[in-house]
């Protein structure tokens, strides 16, 4: 199941070519993950300055990433784990 988010942005422009917004959607992940090239970054930033839906999509995508890295609790490593790893390694010849 594709999310509604994707569907709303997958409309092709009238001539059947990829619209600018479609290209922006494809760059969203690259942008929030810091993987976009300099050219991609400036293309992206120029577009979202003028396009409200794409600007909002970018905000949403950043928020989603922030939820995972900022709110997901880390589990605590049991104290015994490091000790038993060291012990088992010392036994290994």
């Amino acid at each position: 199941m594709e999310s509604r988010f994707t569907e709303t942005h997958q409309k092709l422009s009238d001539d059947g070519h990829e619209s600018e917004c479609d290209k922006i959607v494809k760059l969203l992940d690259l942008m929030i993950d810091g993987e976009a090239s300099t050219e991609e970054q400036s293309y992206f930033n120029t577009h979202i300055e003028e396009c409200v839906p794409c600007f909002e999509s970018h905000q949403k995508q950043k928020l989603l990433k922030g939820l995972v890295c900022g709110h997901l609790k880390r589990v605590i490593v049991p104290e015994s784990l490091a000790l038993s790893i060291k012990a088992r390694i010392q036994e290994t010849v």
């Binding site: 589990v75 490593v77 784990l81 490091a82 790893i85 088992r88």
Partner: peptide, 26 residues
């Protein structure tokens, strides 16, 4: 060994079980 913490967390997220995470990391 400095990678133990992220590694254990990764194992836990994969297995969703503390004992399995423990075994997997060892």
């Amino acid at each position: 060994l400095p990678v133990l913490d992220p590694l254990y967390n990764f194992a836990y997220r994969l297995t969703l079980d503390e004992d399995d995470a423990n075994d997997l990391v060892q």
